[in-house]
């Protein structure tokens, strides 16, 4: 069970969080004007990084807020100093 640093509440056990996937996946501003490939990328393509991964967590059973974090997916260690609001 990971320890996850919520930038609002501090380090808390993984049980309190929901994983919210890769960070910085922006929804195309105008979906109807977006081509199939771009829309597919938005919906389905993820970096699935082996290494330092930018991801989102939600402190669902705590303050309920979303935040970003960097985690190395080869060690599961967070870059603690880099979790951001």
């Amino acid at each position: 069970m990971l320890i996850i640093n919520c930038p609002y509440c501090g380090p808390r056990p993984e049980l309190e969080f929901s994983y919210a996937g890769q960070a910085h996946v922006a929804r195309p501003a105008d979906p109807s004007a977006t081509g199939d490939d771009e829309w597919t990328a938005y919906l389905y393509l993820r970096t699935n990084t082996r290494g330092v991964h930018a991801e989102r967590w939600r402190h669902a059973r705590g303050c309920a807020r979303f935040f970003n974090a960097l985690r190395d997916t080869t060690t599961d260690r967070f870059r603690r100093d880099l979790s951001e609001r």
Binding site: M1, L2, E14, S18, Y19, R50, D76
Partner: peptide, 13 residues
């Protein structure tokens, strides 16, 4: 487990 990982290791809970 809930998150993506290549560690081939998971959590006790």
């Amino acid at each position: 487990d809930a998150y993506t990982s290549y560690t081939q290791r998971g959590a006790l809970h």
